[in-house]
Amino acid sequence: MMILNKIISFYYREYKLNLSGFQDILTNIIFFFVSIFIFIFSIGPDKETISIIGIGILWTLLLLSSTLSLRKFYQDDFENGNLLIMHLNGFSFGFIAILKTFSHFIFVQVPFLLSIPIACILLNIANDKLTYLFSSFIIGSFILSCLGSISSSMNLMNQRNFLLGSVIVMIFSVPIIIFSVGIVNLEENFNSLISILFGILIIVFAINPWASGLCLRIALENN
């Protein structure tokens, strides 16, 4: 029961931190909407064109705005020593990575779920596509959280070029974008495409604790 208490207190701390820094998450969402406006201004307000390429725009901007907050994934905990304290309390680095991934998914990605219907209205996407969009977004955003964990733990000691972390996430998210946009556009292939997406989720979720835990340990050993 000790470990359960520790996990609960970990999430309580994450909740408190994210509540006090809620304007960061709101800034992400505002970035998302402003980019939608800019996209629509740049391609012109033609309803037909927008409804064709709307899904692609939505997924691109979700990806871009979720990479914005990567810098804060491990950096604060790393610099004030909390990662070391968690490890001394009996969490292995891989387990810390899993916990942080879930926390990132809950506190950063899930607020985007609320903004998707409004974005659908702006981009003229039909209502019956909303379920496909939600189901692909829940799986896809969890994959993005895992990738974000891997890339931000790699770049903990990287003082010069943090943009590299975003590039790593974006290059590995190519299959996610392909299959997620495919789910919404090709509704008759829903089952097969969502199975592929689940497969990617399982692969990434298996790699995540190994890679992030190793990177965290390397960074803490050589700090």
Binding site: M154, M157, N158, Q159, R160, N161, L164, A211, C215, A219
Partner: peptide, 22 residues
């Protein structure tokens, strides 16, 4: 770019190796 952007050599080579594996 990763080879160019880390200052600590030990961290750099291990992180690059993990990235190669991923």
């Amino acid at each position: 770019f990763m080879n160019l952007s880390f200052e600590n050599r030990i961290v750099r080579e291990k992180v690059v190796a993990i990235f190669v594996l991923v």
